[in-house]
């Protein structure tokens, strides 16, 4: 229990009178974005690559061209099992994923204003996957792009998950003299396949 009640009591006696919670009026922000165009632009801003594709076979085909040297691979796309070189069912601990070169995940939600893509426990069989992998590939349908974060949370209110993450580009840092370096602790690259 610790100091729970003492802290709560102190806050209760020190807080101001109740103030109204403002409503979020989304119309203040709307500007009729061309969603695909805006999303593409922002993906580039955050350091990701964007590629269009027709089918999952097409995607796998293109991936093999883009990443010819990758050895350890995993995909959760439908009908791409032959692509996988590891079996997550036999994985003992997430640490064994350390040498994963390539991960392909399908996502159901992306945000135009910032180029981010949502993946959650529903898509990620092991949480650390999209972070520990060297090269991350996310697959997305154009119809799943929403304009702003507000609409994204609207959609998420119906998609319960125990863990989820918005990913915008590859991991990066500018901690050394403000010079941007792509590839800090997470993925070194992010490629997005956009299905129209």
């Amino acid at each position: 229990m610790g100091s729970r009640n003492q802290i709560l009591e102190k806050i209760k006696s020190n807080k101001p009178e109740l103030l109204d919670l403002p409503n979020i009026d989304i119309s203040l922000f709307e500007e009729n974005l061309d969603l695909i165009k805006e999303f593409t632009k922002k993906v580039e801003v955050v350091g990701g690559n964007i590629v269009t594709a027709n089918s999952n076979e097409d995607i796998i085909h293109q991936i093999e061209k883009i990443f010819p040297d990758s050895k350890v691979k995993f995909s959760n796309l439908e009908n791409t099992q032959s692509f996988n070189t590891i079996n997550l069912a036999t994985l003992h601990k997430p640490h064994d994923l350390e040498n994963l070169d390539l991960l392909v995940l399908e996502s159901k939600l992306a945000v135009a204003e910032n180029g981010s893509i949502w993946v959650s426990d529903n898509e990620i069989p092991v949480r650390v996957l999209p972070f520990i992998v060297q090269h991350l590939v996310l697959v997305l349908s154009a119809k799943d792009i929403v304009p702003y974060m507000h609409q994204a949370y609207d959609k998420l209110s119906n998609l319960d998950s125990d863990f989820g993450v918005f990913i915008a580009g590859p991991s990066k840092t500018a901690d050394i003299e403000q010079s941007l370096v792509i590839g800090a602790h997470g993925a070194l690259s992010l490629t997005i396949f956009l299905k129209e």
Binding site: V45, F163, V165, I167, A168, K172
Partner: peptide, 13 residues
């Protein structure tokens, strides 16, 4: 000035 951080991780369970 980034539109969002690279990772916005939502922990629940």
């Amino acid at each position: 000035g980034q539109p969002i951080t690279t990772y916005s991780s939502h922990f629940k369970k």
